[in-house]
């Protein structure tokens, strides 16, 4: 796929849409689009991965391996979402695995090259890392809400039907 085509794709994805066109052009030059079939593993929990993935279409699931329970699905992500943040931070060992739960297209960018782009263009780097922080903060809040177990059978937590 031509870099120009890829830049247009990146402009439409929620994660990258706010990045400046010039930076997107450079990002596009370092990226490819990959088709991932349903059930295909993108990267495994604990594996070394050096790519950042942006979901163009389809859905990926993040899974963590739990001894005795196998791969536990903890989050699903859809179009416009980012996967593989550990690689961008230079922590190539993945904290969770990613698997396609339907046929998906992902934009794949080398994390090493992205970090070099960030170093060379600090404004671009700031915006990219801000997007990363925004995505991770949403996942952190979502995880906290999951921890609260809001739909458990505690009467005081069920507002649509008061405890009697």
């Amino acid at each position: 796929m031509e870099a120009d085509q890829l830049r247009f794709i990146l402009q439409e994805l929620r994660f990258s849409a706010v990045l400046p066109v010039e930076g997107l052009g450079r990002l596009a030059e370092e990226s490819t689009v990959r088709r991932v079939a349903a059930g295909e593993v993108v990267f495994r929990d604990g594996s070394t991965n050096n790519n950042l993935y942006l979901i163009r279409s389809g859905r990926l699931a993040l899974e963590m391996n739990v001894p005795g329970r196998g791969a536990v699905r903890i989050l699903t992500l859809g179009a416009g979402e980012m996967v593989g943040w550990s690689a961008l931070l230079g922590q190539g060992k993945m904290t969770a695995g990613a698997i396609a739960i339907e046929d998906s297209d992902v934009v794949v960018a080398s994390a090493d090259r992205l970090r070099e782009l960030c170093e060379a263009d600090r404004d671009f780097g700031f915006l990219l890392m801000r997007q990363m922080a925004d995505a991770l903060s949403k996942r952190l809040v979502a995880t906290r809400l999951q921890l609260l177990d809001l739909f458990a059978d505690a009467p005081s937590l069920i507002p649509t039907q008061q405890a009697d």
Binding site: R14, R59, A61, R73, I74, L75, T76, L77, G78, A79, G80, E81, I101, K138, V141, A142, L145, Q146
Partner: peptide
């Protein structure tokens, strides 16, 4: 389960 996993607020963020 092949559906979504995560809190419902994330679905709002993903709504196209």
């Amino acid at each position: 389960w092949l559906g979504n996993v995560g809190v419902v607020t994330l679905l709002l963020d993903q709504l196209p």
